[in-house]
């Protein structure tokens, strides 16, 4: 496929957008079998990646704190649960 990144390295939106484009291509029904199969298999992998990311995602929380140089730096931040 055109993309260099493996599916496992992809961010959600990358996988999601490629998946949408790929389904459209497959639905056009104009590709030879080998390519169609490759698209189908990649689509399966992309969809699995999307589901996995959504299920496992956890909001990352950072907080800005002033540092010695007069600027700011980020540190982890624990928000007390509601």
């Amino acid at each position: 496929m055109a993309k260099k990144k493996t599916v496992e390295q992809m961010r959600f939106e990358e996988a999601f957008e490629e998946l949408a484009a790929l389904v459209g291509q497959l639905e056009s029904g104009e590709l030879p079998l080998e390519q169609s199969l490759a698209l189908f298999e990649r689509g399966q992998a992309l969809a699995a990646r999307c589901s996995q990311l959504l299920e496992q995602a956890e909001l990352k929380l950072r907080q800005l704190v002033p540092d010695q140089s007069g600027g700011y730096s980020e540190t982890d931040f624990e928000a007390e649960a509601e």
């Binding site: 999601f16 949408a20 497959l26 639905e27 689509g43 399966q44 969809a47 999307c50 959504l54």
Partner: peptide
């Protein structure tokens, strides 16, 4: 909504592949 969309796209993917392989079977 995203979860629902991914499920929907999965179905479209399977349907499209089924269609495609049916056509290809004749060609082969």
């Amino acid at each position: 909504e995203l979860v629902a969309e991914v499920i929907e796209v999965r179905h479209r993917l399977a349907r499209a592949w089924e269609e495609r392989s049916r056509t290809i079977r004749y060609l082969i």
